[in-house]
Amino acid sequence: MSIEFLSDAEPAIRTLNHLLARFGHLPVAEMSVRTIYRREEEPFLVPAVLISVYDEMADFEAWREALGINPESVDLRLWNTSFSLVAIARWGGTWVELRGCGDAPPALHEPAKAVAA
């Protein structure tokens, strides 16, 4: 089952309004309502709020802390000189997917140096 009507997304839309009211002081982020796949829930496709921040890892961290997302639950992916961070958690009774991406710090660009024994 997927979201078929706008009214099906009402919980996520309400959560989006609550986020604005509570966290208006946080860095600007791109926000939208979408469906996400949750294998452990029925229905499998559920409404969620997507929060995307770009370029600044500090902005991602500010949102992660505000939403109470455990740092260990953040998925980090590196590609050459860029990174992405993804965390999915419940907030206000609705699933929230927090995403961040940008240029990886220069220290992560260099391959690990072999340590002489």
Rank of each mutant, 00 (worst) to 15 (best):
M1Q: 13
F5R: 15
F5V: 03
L6S: 13
L6A: 14
S7K: 10
S7L: 09
S7G: 04
E10K: 14
A12S: 14
I13R: 15
I13G: 05
I13E: 01
R14I: 06
R14N: 06
T15M: 00
L16P: 03
N17H: 06
N17I: 02
H18I: 04
H18G: 01
L19N: 00
A21C: 01
R22L: 12
F23Q: 06
F23L: 03
H25E: 13
L26K: 05
L26P: 01
L26A: 04
V28W: 09
A29P: 05
A29N: 08
M31S: 10
M31K: 14
M31G: 05
M31Y: 11
S32A: 15
V33T: 14
I36Y: 07
Y37T: 05
Y37C: 02
R38C: 10
R39T: 03
R39C: 01
E40Y: 01
E42C: 02
E42M: 03
E42Y: 03
P43R: 03
F44I: 09
V46Y: 00
V46N: 02
V46I: 14
P47N: 05
A48Y: 06
V49N: 07
V49P: 01
V49K: 09
L50K: 03
L50I: 11
L50A: 06
L50G: 03
L50R: 12
I51V: 15
S52T: 06
V53D: 04
V53H: 04
Y54F: 07
D55E: 10
D55N: 10
D55H: 07
A58M: 02
F60C: 00
R64Y: 08
R64A: 11
R64S: 03
E65R: 11
G68L: 09
I69P: 01
N70E: 15
P71R: 03
E72T: 05
S73W: 02
S73D: 15
V74C: 05
D75A: 00
L76C: 02
R77S: 13
R77V: 09
L78N: 11
W79Q: 13
W79N: 11
N80C: 07
S82Q: 14
F83R: 12
L85M: 07
V86A: 02
R90T: 04
W91K: 05
G93I: 15
G93K: 09
G93S: 12
E97V: 02
G100L: 08
D103M: 10
A104M: 11
A104Q: 11
P105H: 11
P105Y: 10
P106E: 14
P106D: 09
A107L: 10
H109L: 15
H109C: 10
H109P: 11
E110S: 13
P111T: 13
A112E: 15
K113N: 04
A114G: 09
V115C: 00
V115E: 14
A116S: 10
